[in-house]
Amino acid sequence: MRLALLLLTLLGLALAQPPQTTPPPDLSPEVFRIAKGLRCPVCQGESASESNSGVAQEMRRLIAEQLAQGKSEAEIRQFFVERYGPWILYEPPKQGLTLWVWLSPLIGLALLAYGLWRYLAATRARAVPADVSEEEIARLEAELHQPPDPHRRTP
């Protein structure tokens, strides 16, 4: 058929991807959901759900196969972690060094809030002299110079 001929001439030897010989298996939404949490090993920046590289397709096929065998999501993840290490998980484990990432919103908020609190405390302290009411100044002055200097009172 024309299609095959065209592709053969087009692709020639400069192949970078495996050829498709048999149709890939049908994949349920569940497969894509699980694959989304797994990193595609070849592409490095995409999940196994998004990528169309050979490995990602095989990973989706393995997920579908294992789901059909009744394995749980955790077991499937574990299957890939055993082979690729925790690197394959897009969600970093909440322990060890990556625990800090999970705490980063709290740390960031706490640091910024602390900075803001210190800043506002300082500005409030500086604002105090100006905020002392005139009545108070008058009373203090009255205590200092009894009797108060009449010239100071002129408007």
């Binding site: 999940s47 690197w87 998980l89 969600e91 060094l97 990556t98 990432v101 919103p105």
Partner: peptide, 30 residues
Amino acid sequence: TMAFVVVIGTVWPLVVEALSGAKVSIGAPF
């Protein structure tokens, strides 16, 4: 804070690798 989180999440794999040599991924689910 959000900017802080995104910076940390983006560079943390490098930090982990520098400190322990291990490779980790921090992606969309996080």
